[in-house]
Structures are given as structure tokens and as C-alpha cells.
Design a protein around this nucleic acid. Sequence first.
DNA 1: TTCATACTTCGATGCTAACCGAAGCATTTG
DNA 2: CAAATGCTTCGGTTAGCATCGAAGTATGAA
Lengths: 228, 228
Amino acid sequence: MKEGPDIAQIGALIGDPARANMLTALMGGNALTATELAGTAGITLQTASSHLSKLEAGGLICQRKQGRHRYFALADDDVGLLLESLMGFAAHRGFTRHRTGPRDPALRKARVCYNHLAGDYGVRMLDSLVAEEVIAGAGDDLTLTQSGAEKMTALGIDLSALTRSRRPVCRTCLDWSERRSHLSGSLGQALLTLFLDKGWARRETDSRAVRFTGTGEKEFAKLFPLSA
Amino acid sequence: MKEGPDIAQIGALIGDPARANMLTALMGGNALTATELAGTAGITLQTASSHLSKLEAGGLICQRKQGRHRYFALADDDVGLLLESLMGFAAHRGFTRHRTGPRDPALRKARVCYNHLAGDYGVRMLDSLVAEEVIAGAGDDLTLTQSGAEKMTALGIDLSALTRSRRPVCRTCLDWSERRSHLSGSLGQALLTLFLDKGWARRETDSRAVRFTGTGEKEFAKLFPLSA
DNA sequence: TTCATACTTCGATGCTAACCGAAGCATTTG
DNA sequence: CAAATGCTTCGGTTAGCATCGAAGTATGAA
């Protein structure tokens, strides 16, 4: 009778405020402990544990035991992409949790989207990469060009490591604040890591916001010029 | 404290099985009455009415009064895109409602995605349009080329009508069965309408499946050749 | 006007699941 | 070993909401 996949189960998983808060916290990209997640969701540890096992059973998160800690993280890139697209929809419809706060501009400028860069800077970066023909793409099928590969290697990115993995190197992710695409995939992740490693940007504590330093801004602008 | 949009409300809206079934039914693209929707969801009319008002309050659907009927439809393209991406995620994780039925192959081949063509044929069409340079695109920014516009007009599509509206002409939509993009937007809608009008394909009743006729298959293959 | 159809609103019921206290298990530290 | 920390499981309570019966409103037909 009914045909196609069941969206209700996932909807229900995301539909609980406590679980949604946890997932949003995990969108920061850092693996978090059950205690930390309980804190951000504003619930006790027992309740959080119950929620986390449900999220894991639903394949949205995965856990890694490390000593007496258990670190939770989003299961894979797909979950991040889905959550970001949900956020885009929610933001567009005015479903905000707390009447856009003071940190909102910083979030819109640059933030972490699970493991890559999002916001104005993320979108600008992809635009520039396409304009400079580092990445060639039609639709969602992005590929790294030959010259692009050389540029990335020159930046210090180990492309062979990226291509060895089964994950796609280039992927698009719909930005909730800009409503346009930014770069996801292992290359997107590698670029964000690069910015952080080089000290061009650093993550704010307890927020998805990414703050660029003065030199970081300059290097970023030099690396990813706006096409006239 | 909490930052960013609230995904829990939308998740909760979609998370109820009855509402999810209604939304899935509306993905067929036809506006349906409350009675019809109650039937597909397997609930009484009163319950359906309650759900429908919640979905409308959440901005997911809209209603149009016509005599003593009230027709419900998805609010806009964005809702369709969101639902399709949710289905893609659900299908990939094995969240199926009914153990893939006999109609599943037909759905995967060609189906309606709210108002445009999806499935293998939908993906192939976009691939071909890009390869033939009817559409130029990087990331999610698809644009109709000059030569593409001429080809579409030759097919009998009134482009001026499409561009007058505020809706984007070309858009990507992530296909749940193929996990690749197909063409959405007003052009995607116009093309599907064209196929149906020309009698190349017709919709199955009570299903999202689209069945191409013999001549329809040939015309489609001629119009959207696979790139070697 | 009267009846029928389409849908909404009200009220009551019943089930689910979120929640927390308390106890239990696992790991690390002293 | 014992104590402490991190987390899970169990049990019971509560609140929310999906559900339906019944009554109410609106439109169209006879």
C-alpha cells in the first residue's frame, strides 16, 4: 500500500527538542560526551542516555569509547547535510529557538558545519574555487580539476589520503544562512582543518562560530578571490 | 543560549506517521481533499483535519477552497525538496515503510517529485541537459544557457512565463533513489508537464510512478541522449 | 426549505514517551 | 582493595497528543 521510504521515523527522532539540541550541538563537529550533551539539552544524564541510544539505533550518531568516557558524534557526512538542510528550511520559515541572538552575525559569517566551513565564507570559498576552476561541477557532481589538485597540494593538503577513502572528495551542502551551496566532502573538511592548523581561524568555545584572525582574513581573501 | 534555527518543530511535524503519510501523498503533486488524505493516512476525518491544520500552521502545506471542497497541497518547492532529501536519507538507512513492494522498480525508474520528474529518468535528463549545455551549472547554481533557451522554446515551452515568476527556473533536487540530482524549478515542472501533455508519459493512479509510453521512451531518449 | 456532503470544533479517552530517582555496571584512580 | 567518575538500566510518574464520537458550520443540490 504505502510506497517509498519512511520519513516519519527520522522526523520523530529529530522532532524531540532534547534530541534536536543534541544534534545541533554535534553539528559543531566535536565529539561530545553524554554529560556534555545532557548539559546542552538541559536534561539529566539518564534521560540523555536514553535519547542517545535512540539516536544511535536510528543511525544518526555513533559512539566511540575512550577510557571511561564515551564520545558521541554524528554518524557521517549525510547526517550533517540533512541537518543543515533542515536548518535552512527552519530558518527560512522563521522557526528560531531564541530570537536571533548577538552571536548570530558571527554564525552567519563563518561557522563549522559538522566538519567543514559554512556561512558567508563557506559559500564564497566554493564560488571562488569554481571560478578559479579548481573545482568543476554541474549540479551536485563536483570534481577536482587537474590544476586544482596541484593548487591544493601546494597548500599542503594530502590529496592521496583524501582519494584513498571511500568518502566523496567534493560535495555540496546547502547553507542555511546563505541558502546557497558551500563545499563539503573530504576536501571541505581538509580545508577547514588547514585554516585552523595554520592559525588563520579558531573556533569559538560552545558555538559553531569560526573567528578569522587578521592574517587569516588576508590569506583567505588572497586564496579565494571574489570573481568580478 | 541556544543558537540557530529550530529543527525540532519541523521534525515533530514530519515525525508523526499520519502526517508523514499525508505529506508523502502530496509529493505526488496533486492537490488532495481532506477526505482523500484521511483515507491514505488511514485515520478518520476529524483526526486528519487536526493534522492538516497543524501542517498548515507550520507552513508545510496550503489550502485552497473550492466550493465545498478544500484542496491541500505542499506549500512550495522548498517543502518538496526537503521531503525528497529526507526520503533519500531514509531510503539509504533502510527506513522503509513496507518492505519495498512490486511498484518499487517503477518508482525508481520515473516518478513525480512534487511537480517535476525524478528517478532514473529525472537524473538522466539533468545529466543530459548539462552535457548538451542546455543548462550550465556549478554547485547548485544552475542557469539556462542562451542556446538552451532556444531549444526549450523549440520544444514548446513558454520561457517568458517561467522567468516572469519569482520562482527559480532551474534548481537541483536530490533524488532519493538515485542519490544524485535531478532538475527542479519551474523548468523542471514545465518539462514534466510537457511529457504528460504530449502523451509521452502518464501518471499511475494512487502512486507517484510515471509510466512512459513506447513513443515516449523514444522521444525521451532522442531529446536527452546519454553522453558517451 | 430540506437534505446531503465536506469539513471543523469540542470533549473525552487512552496510549506513548519524556522524564527523573535510584540502583547497577564499568573504568580509572588512590 | 576501596572510592570516585561516567554512563546505563529499571521503575514509576506525568504530560502531551493522537485518536475518535458527537455536535456544529458551510456549501451545494433537490
